[in-house]
């Protein structure tokens, strides 16, 4: 991303998944007893969900399109680097590794 693009603030709509996860998974009222999920590795979950969306056409069916125009997912830095990064993240997230196209 060039420094020009970074110059001014921009409201992000719709909310980026990472911002939603940061709040919904980690913040808010926490109640003792009854059913409660364990504290999760939020970073890992976010990466997993990003990957799901990056790789699945299903996301479109789900009406989620925030990734469009995302330089990371569109591989503006070159396809090779993008694939390498995906592989690395998939390994980290314990997902099956992306096949060579």
């Amino acid at each position: 991303m060039s420094s020009r693009e970074l110059e001014s603030y921009r409201p992000s709509q719709p909310a980026q998944l990472a911002d939603v996860l940061e709040r919904v998974l980690d913040k808010g009222i926490v109640i003792a007893g009854d059913i409660q999920i364990n504290l999760l590795d939020i970073e890992l979950l976010t990466v997993k969900i990003r990957l799901l969306i990056a790789s699945a056409d299903k996301a479109r069916e789900m009406g989620i399109d925030w990734w469009q125009g995302d330089p990371f997912l569109h591989g503006r830095n070159g396809q090779g680097e993008l694939e390498e990064r995906l592989r690395r993240l998939e390994e980290k997230a314990g997902l099956p590794t992306t096949e060579e196209p």
Binding site: V24, K27, V30, I37
Partner: peptide
């Protein structure tokens, strides 16, 4: 509103 954390479920 005071939001709850994800998956706050009562039986």
């Amino acid at each position: 509103v005071m939001p709850c954390r994800f998956c706050t479920v009562y039986r």
